[in-house]
Design a protein around this nucleic acid. Structure first.
Ligand SMILES: [Zn+2]
Ligand SMILES: [Zn+2]
Ligand SMILES: [Zn+2]
Ligand SMILES: [Zn+2]
Lengths: 172, 172
DNA sequence: CGATGTTATGTTATAATGTAACATTATTGA
DNA sequence: TCAATAATGTTACATTATAACATAACATCG
């Protein structure tokens, strides 16, 4: 049983982020509230579409493709042309409220918003769960190499695919 | 002057891989020869298309998109339907002779073939050079987190975008 | 307020990237 | 040589992403 999900609670087996057993509704509320506060403080406009996209992302601890987001937007009475989703996603990712998982060409709600951070992901190839953790980019192995080479790191993509503990146990 | 290129020699300012000043023709020869030997040893078929795709990739220390590869294939008398390139790329990446740079949705010839390795890339956003280095995935920061979480890492994507030393100097 | 600049959204069309599916050909290895 | 396997040819399509331009909402300053 790789993953259990009810409307209010998700059980998973990864520790990094909020992926232990937890009251998942809090994740959603937190994401929205933090984003709202952040935008207010930074004088950014947390418009209905942006809010809705973040809500959609925060529903699940997994990455969601832009076109899946568009479907959900349509269901909620918003337009469903690609630019709508991509613009909202651009806003959210630019301000660290969501991230793109490059390996999946899909997006995920950030579980460490506010903090300036370099996210890293553990992607389960079986249950598709995505766990986020943060790194100090400069302290990674690649950071050292970059420094030695006078390469100025501006962004870091760090993603591992594999099996989460639940799926790993189930696989043996 | 971010990058200098003549037919036989490329000058760049990144140290990790073969990206210091070097006789670039060797890179191409090495890539092909190593691949040939590897395939022979592993009883894999290093067919004309696969060889040509690797040659195309090895021409440059930067990532090349599948459709750009297709163009080059056509110029060389091969077919130019997408599956041609993608199949060759699948073969090359599967056997560690080339890699996909996820951040760019593009492919690059491996500079550490033969060795079982987890590549990491330094991508210059100005001159598009891509420098490859290798990592021990388990020893990365994410590796430690994965271990603690009982996450079984099977693959690692580690890519940094930024400015290579040449472009960095030029930018100030 | 009302003009004006700025930001966000609506809309259409298309670009870029990647695969499924099936027919044909080449290679391998009894 | 024959059957099994692997690779290639080919068509069609799926998925992901952006360009470009029009309209609307919002800010803010006189
Ligand atoms: Zn949760
Ligand atoms: Zn899992
Ligand atoms: Zn070279
Ligand atoms: Zn550069």
């Amino acid at each position: 049983m790789p993953k259990k999900k009810t409307s209010e609670n998700v059980t998973v087996g990864i520790t990094p982020v909020a992926l232990k057993e937890h009251e998942h509704a809090h994740c959603i509320d937190d994401a929205i509230n933090t984003a709202e506060a952040y935008c207010k403080n930074a004088k950014l406009r947390f418009t209905p579409i942006r809010r809705k996209v973040l809500e959609i992302l925060a529903q699940e601890h997994r990455a969601i493709g832009a076109y899946a987001i568009l479907e959900r937007l349509r269901e909620n009475g918003f337009g469903s042309q690609p630019p709508l989703a991509y613009r909202a996603l651009e806003f959210l990712t630019k301000h660290g409220l969501a991230h793109k998982v490059e390996r999946l060409n899909a997006f995920i709600s950030c579980t460490h918003p506010t903090k300036e951070h370099s996210p890293a992901f553990l992607i389960c190839r079986t249950c598709s769960s995505v766990a986020e953790t943060t790194l100090d980019a400069a302290k990674t192995s690649l950071g050292g190499i970059a420094r030695a080479a006078n390469f100025r790191m501006e962004g870091l993509v760090m993603e591992s695919e594999g099996l989460c503990s639940s799926c790993s146990r189930a696989a043996t």
